[in-house]
């Protein structure tokens, strides 16, 4: 699953740490999600999308083969 969290962070001008604190995970977890190494749960994906005032599918998208 791909995501554009890095782009959204840049638009909102926030760091990984700020986003991590807001959604209650570690900064390393946000980094792992951004790099596509970890697929978050639905709850965490919705929290991240809500933080950016977007729908989940505007932040996360399925890739071919998912």
């Amino acid at each position: 699953m791909k995501n554009n969290i890095r782009v959204e962070r840049a638009i909102h001008g926030i760091s990984q740490q700020q986003l991590a604190d807001s959604v209650g995970v570690s900064r390393q977890t946000i980094n792992a999600i951004e790099k596509g190494r970890f697929v978050p749960s639905t709850v965490l994906a919705m929290k991240i999308a809500r933080y950016f005032n977007k729908n989940v599918e505007m932040v996360f998208a399925l890739e071919e083969g998912d």
């Binding site: 209650g24 995970v25 570690s26 390393q28 977890t29 792992a32 970890f38 749960s41 965490l44």
Partner: peptide, 9 residues
């Protein structure tokens, strides 16, 4: 210290 879902995984 930070117990999130990745740590649980």
């Amino acid at each position: 210290r930070v117990e999130d879902e990745l740590v649980m995984w």
